[in-house]
């Protein structure tokens, strides 16, 4: 029997640790409760013609805000915490290389976030089905998968942050900055650019580049993808543009952006971490 690769051993241990610390169950509980609530909200608004698609849309809006925080919290200390406590010296005194450690940590924490989100969404799916008497399964499954991808992207960002910082407090500062920058500030950026370019705030119809800019952040890409998933390809975008959508607004582009947000910070983190002095 060939032994399992060393990064898998590390990923397993990370996963087991997260189960022991109940981090994963925290994610399940928060996602289950919040998305169920937001799915139910449109029932309470009088006159809103809410179907289960609307409910899933509402749940994904919430997830777009919550998932980045949870993924960042789940992973921002993965390396920096061990570096500060000194356990990194013990691990790297054993056979694992720095790359294997980083990859194993990314995999393990991603697994925790992915399974936590999936279980949480299953609960809210059941709640939605009960409230609306039905559930569009494929749209729901697609939204769950996209939410998992968003979570993994932020785990990648968090691990990247963790790899370039040597103390817990610096990692926390960077994680908060990343959250504010990528979710809250980024929403303002397209508006500001629009104002600069056209001299007025964006109205009902917007230029195509505006939507691309919006979708360039992980949360923006996620929202764009979920929207298309729920409302059908193209129609929502064309309504927004008042015409046909250019090729660069294809869902594949946003999918690529989301994946890049997982991979690029991880790669940058690795390059820095590989050359770091540990003492």
């Amino acid at each position: 029997m060939t032994p399992e690769p060393i990064w898998l051993t590390i990923a397993r241990k990370e996963f087991a640790d997260a189960l022991r610390s109940r981090m994963m169950w925290g994610i399940v509980a928060i996602i289950a409760v919040m998305t169920s609530l937001s799915a139910g909200i449109s029932l309470l608004v009088p006159g809103a013609d809410g179907g289960p698609e609307m409910a899933i849309g509402g749940a994904s809006q919430f997830a777009g805000i919550l998932v980045p925080i949870m993924a960042l919290i789940a992973a921002y200390l993965a390396i920096a915490g061990e570096r500060e406590s000194g356990s990194l010296k013990v691990i790297l005194g054993l056979p694992p290389s720095r790359g294997e450690l980083l990859f194993g940590k990314f995999l393990g924490r991603s697994g925790v976030v992915a399974i936590g989100l999936t279980l949480g969404f299953v609960v809210s799916g059941v709640a939605t089905a009960a409230l609306y008497g039905g559930l569009p399964v494929s749209a729901f499954a697609g939204t769950t998968a996209l939410t998992v991808l968003l979570g993994v992207a932020f785990v990648g960002i968090a691990i990247g942050i963790s790899a370039v910082t040597s103390t817990r407090s610096r990692a926390m500062t960077l994680a908060i900055t990343a959250y504010l920058g990528l979710t809250l500030l980024w929403d303002l950026a397209p508006n500001a650019v629009h104002l600069l370019v056209t001299g007025e705030m964006p109205g009902q119809e917007v230029p195509a580049w505006f939507l691309l800019l919006q979708g360039f952040s992980p949360t923006g890409a996620y929202n764009a993808l979920v929207q298309r998933q729920l409302l059908g390809a193209g129609t929502a975008v064309e309504a927004r543009l008042g015409g046909p959508a250019p090729a660069y607004l294809d869902p594949a582009v946003f999918l690529g952006i989301l994946v890049a947000w997982a991979v690029v910070p991880l790669a940058v983190g690795y390059l820095r971490f590989r050359r770091a002095d540990l003492s």
Binding site: E82, S85, L88, K89
Partner: peptide, 18 residues
């Protein structure tokens, strides 16, 4: 090297929860 060496580093830490 790491497969053949055992080290007790200076200023190390362990996992509190394990």
């Amino acid at each position: 090297i790491h497969e053949r060496v055992g080290i007790l580093p200076d200023g190390y830490g362990l996992y509190d929860r394990l």
